[in-house]
Write a protein that binds this DNA or RNA. Sequence first.
DNA 1: CTCTTTTTAGTACATTTGTATTAAAAAAAC
DNA 2: GTTTTTTTAATACAAATGTACTAAAAAGAG
Lengths: 199, 199
Amino acid sequence: MPKVVDHVERRRELAEAVWRVILRDGVEGVSVRNVAAEAEWSTGALRHYFGTKEELLSSATQLLEERAVARFTSKQYDGTPREAIRAVLCEILPLDEERRTEGDLWFAFAARSLVDPRIAKEHGPVFDGARELCVRITQQMAEGGWLYPGLEPDVEAARLHALIDGLAMHMLMRRVDEQEALTTLDAHLVQIIRDVQQY
Amino acid sequence: MPKVVDHVERRRELAEAVWRVILRDGVEGVSVRNVAAEAEWSTGALRHYFGTKEELLSSATQLLEERAVARFTSKQYDGTPREAIRAVLCEILPLDEERRTEGDLWFAFAARSLVDPRIAKEHGPVFDGARELCVRITQQMAEGGWLYPGLEPDVEAARLHALIDGLAMHMLMRRVDEQEALTTLDAHLVQIIRDVQQY
DNA sequence: CTCTTTTTAGTACATTTGTATTAAAAAAAC
DNA sequence: GTTTTTTTAATACAAATGTACTAAAAAGAG
């Protein structure tokens, strides 16, 4: 029998090499040879796992999706409502290097998804994950009586999602810094959270 | 003397060809030959106006910027405060084909600007134009007494900007439709505009 | 060890890429 | 008409690209 290789691990390894290339040169810098060189593989070995360049990009998107969605869905509330919600939302903002990397990739793939249906399909769950996170937040707020009176949970989820993605994008474009983003987010939370003295 | 050619017009013509290529194939589809074919020019003629591919992309970004900023800064208020503000903000959302095209390009260039400082520099004014629009709105609201009490004009400008850009992005990604976007925008306006009976 | 299958390396090939060069065509000044 | 300069077309070329192919290497089963 042949050498036993963890295919899942190999594909992850390759996907991460794709990431590094994208972060350095953008999606346009992704070529079979570039990725192989980045991973220190031969093009032949790479081709053994990925038949085409498209599969390579798909795999990189999928890995990003898995990680992001896992992070979004694993977070739990604790602390005061405002602190908890703020902490959850901060998972989306590129506040540290890891999340900035994820954000850069998310942005690159989002732009590519506009002209590449295949990427769009694989990128969709990232949007859905963030949206579900926002829906979960506003629904739990409504149930706990923390949602500011008169606000609709679903509409507020959409608004929160647009705001947080817009902020994230502005940060990725380096036009808004961390402090301004948090100030903006806090201003929003003030308006949607009803302050309860004892919770 | 030579044939008299309107260089500005030529460059505009070429930039629009670049746009069409980007809309069809993404930024990665832009090559000297592709653009020349799209414009029905020879590569030699194209090269007479643009020495390198980078200049070609720069020119396309600049044209986008000029148009977008012109649209943003030309709008004037009229009608009730809410109607006027809504109308101005709707200039940013991709609600018709022209603005969707602009939006698609804006998105493509924004993503590219993360790894290409040159594009970033030329793309910056588009961000600034939208931000100034938001600042103008919130400041005029504050001066006219329409801003909901307790809100800071500058913070609200940043929040409005993030929200509108996030909504625009979600629409461009085809994950949010026109109706949901307007519902979300209206929910936001309700919270930042103080309803004055007589204005 | 021998066999069998996976994994890898290296190379090949047709396209496409950015850029440069060349010479022809066009058009106004004289 | 001739001259002069811009504009255009066509081609050239090295480099990079996606994909395919071939044979060597690796590693467990018998």
